[in-house]
């Protein structure tokens, strides 16, 4: 509460103080002056973003920098960062929000990949329908993609109501690369109808370990009972990997039935093997923690 009061006081005094206003105006004038170096302009944009946007003219100037493809990319990214920082002050920024969002939509297909990706990320956090449409279109038709498929899937996952499950399933069937497959699985981790897929991947010892861990985590969210069953089987399987066993151990420790686990002799024996075998210290420690909890 005390911090909030301090912040509010500071923000009010920032609005009133002529010296701060003068400083902000000077910062904007440095930022928009093309004769200054990119470094100077970026530093000016980062200087006092909230105070700088106290009038429409200042905001228009910074939006112009962001829109202008002839400006150095570092300065445009600085302008974007400055605007985004300002947008956190919802009340102060609200009058400019419309211009800001319209500008973001306008530059969403900018030639610079970093700017494009950041703009799409900002729009997707707003659950913007146009950004969603473009990302889905890019996944269906790679010639129109604004970002790599793995990034598009990551951005689509910001909105659970985006129409992304269908396209993610298609990517898993025919992945353009390993990263895209991994991100498609991460996205499907909130889709209950994908639980059988995750069960299959978790039990597949030929599968990448990272994918099996994502599958364990997804199953924990979607079908925790099934995860418990698989976790036990994995722990009993002498040939499975230690890291997957450690993940299974955590699942059982967190969500298992304490009484049943304490009586499961085969399981405890297998965990004991993990605690004394060739596993790394980290996994041995997990196994010991499990045993101390369930063999009391």
């Amino acid at each position: 509460m005390a911090t909030k009061r301090k912040t509010a006081k500071r923000s009010k005094s920032a609005k009133r103080s002529p010296s701060l206003k003068a400083f902000a105006r000077r910062a904007v004038s440095i930022a928009i002056n093309e004769r200054n170096t990119a470094k100077q302009r970026v530093a000016a944009l980062a200087a006092e973003p909230l105070a700088a946007f106290e009038n429409d003219k200042d905001l228009a100037a910074v939006l112009n920098i962001l829109r202008n493809k002839d400006e150095p990319i570092a300065v445009r990214l600085g302008a974007l960062e400055s605007l985004q920082t300002a947008s956190f002050s919802v009340d102060t920024f609200a009058p400019y929000r419309g211009d800001y969002l319209a500008t973001l939509r306008k530059i969403v297909d900018d030639p610079d990949p970093e700017l494009r990706q950041r703009v799409l990320g900002l729009l997707m956090r707003e659950h913007d329908g146009s950004a969603q449409e473009k990302l889905l279109e890019g996944l269906k038709n790679p010639d129109k993609a604004l970002v790599p498929p793995e990034k598009a899937l990551q951005l689509l996952s910001y909105d659970v109501h985006a129409e992304a499950y269908l396209v993610a399933r298609d990517i898993i069937k025919k992945p353009p690369n390993d990263d895209a497959r991994r991100e498609a699985l991460r996205l499907l981790a909130a889709d209950p109808s994908s639980a059988p897929l995750f069960e299959k991947l978790l039990r597949d010892k030929n599968e990448l370990r990272e994918i099996r861990q994502i599958s364990a985590s997804a199953l924990n969210a979607l079908k925790p009972d099934r995860l418990k069953e698989h976790a036990r089987e994995i722990l009993l399987d002498k040939s499975d990997y230690d890291d997957i066993k450690a993940t299974s151990l955590t699942a059982l420790e967190q969500f298992g039935d304490d009484a049943a686990l304490g009586k499961d002799k085969a399981l405890l024996k297998s965990v004991d093997r993990l605690s004394t075998g060739q596993a790394t210290a980290k996994y041995k420690q997990s196994a010991k923690r499990f045993l101390s909890k369930f063999t009391k």
């Binding site: 329908g129 969603q132 449409e133 909105d159 109501h161 985006a162 129409e163």
Partner: peptide, 9 residues
């Protein structure tokens, strides 16, 4: 079977 953004439109 439509996504939320389609339904909004």
């Amino acid at each position: 079977g439509r996504g939320t953004a389609s339904i909004v439109r």
